[in-house]
Amino acid sequence: MKVTWTGVYPAITTKFTDNDELDLPLFEKNLKFQLEAGIEGLIIGGTLGEATALTDEEKKTLIKSSLETVGHTIPVLLNIAEQTTKEAIRQAQMAEEHGAHGLMLLPPMRYKATDYETVEYFKAVANATSLPIMLYNNPVDYKILITIDMLDELKECSNIQAIKESTRDITNITRVKNKFGDRFKILGGVDTLALEALLMGADGLVAGLVCAFPEETVAIYKLAKAGRIEEALKIYRWFMPLSELDIDPQLVQNIKLAEVYTGIGSENVRAPRLKLRGKRREEVIKVIEDSLATRPTLPEYKEIEILS
């Protein structure tokens, strides 16, 4: 299946049972809601998917479950977040072997690689698989900035096709577009900058709160791309308090709690993560409940024609 790198790609949460095993029925329930809302791709095993807490077998199971649920309707991507080049290559090849349609690739974890080392890492993984790749540019959380000069070296890898733009610097989208034109697709990767990213030319979104609010997220994307900015802005302003739950160290717990309130998830996380408690839990619940109390009526967004 061809990955077009357009539309909304949920960084889907991994569902766990009370016994800390994969909760596939709940995972599939959430994914069906995402499909119905109109997502155009899926990322499993990302930060929100508790990537570093998953075993190889669990990743394989999630790929299989995702493929069975979505059929041939949308591409399924596996996130690669590893400490060594060797392990990243192994994970990429495992994903390809088990039917994934693409990869999201982070820079090396823990070790703060130099620009040269990061480029060589990306090249090695890209050259070891035929799967299309989206690089994850998030220096705020992962301390490595993928620069324009680095992208200039990476453009020779034809399967490096997209960038998840999470620098928090919205002008970076323009810099990449000015330098490379359409060579790299760009997907906005920060919920609190989603509309801004789309207006600056991002081709899609990798989103977090979409896990709990898929319709609103896809509606913002579709309206923005159709030039119906005022309608998109109205929903986006309503969404902002929820979106801020995505730029928090406990974003996984925040978003899983929101999924509980919308009926498509559970709070179960894998230790060392623990469920929210105390004052912070009360604060997050208030944000969710206030948002649900003022939830907007959406326009008929699914049939909106996207402007080219």
Rank of each mutant, 00 (worst) to 15 (best):
M109F: 14
T6V: 06
S266N: 14
N178E: 15
E40R: 08
T174D: 15
H98Q: 15
A212G: 12
T114V: 04
P241R: 06
Y9G: 07
Y111E: 07
D23Y: 13
A53V: 06
L131H: 10
K302D: 13
N127I: 03
Y111N: 06
Y142V: 15
N30C: 03
Y116G: 01
A126S: 02
Q253L: 15
K112Q: 11
A113Q: 01
L103V: 06
K59N: 09
Q253A: 15
K143D: 10
S65T: 04
T17C: 11
L233C: 10
R110M: 15
E300W: 02
S66P: 12
K256Q: 12
G208D: 08
E156W: 07
I288C: 00
P139M: 00
K234P: 03
T85H: 00
Y121K: 02
A81L: 11
D141V: 11
T217Y: 00
A113S: 15
L48V: 10
G265E: 12
M109C: 13
I12E: 03
I12D: 05
L78G: 01
A212N: 06
L274W: 06
A53C: 00
A113G: 11
A100M: 13
E82I: 11
R110K: 02
T61H: 02
V119F: 00
Q250P: 00
D23A: 14
P241V: 13
L209P: 08
A113E: 04
R183N: 05
N254K: 11
K275F: 10
V140F: 12
I264H: 03
D248K: 01
L24C: 05
V3P: 14
V260A: 09
P107H: 01
D18R: 13
L257V: 12
R168T: 06
L22G: 02
Y301R: 11
E120A: 04
Y236E: 01
L42S: 01
A207D: 00
N127Y: 09
A232W: 14
N254W: 04
T47Y: 01
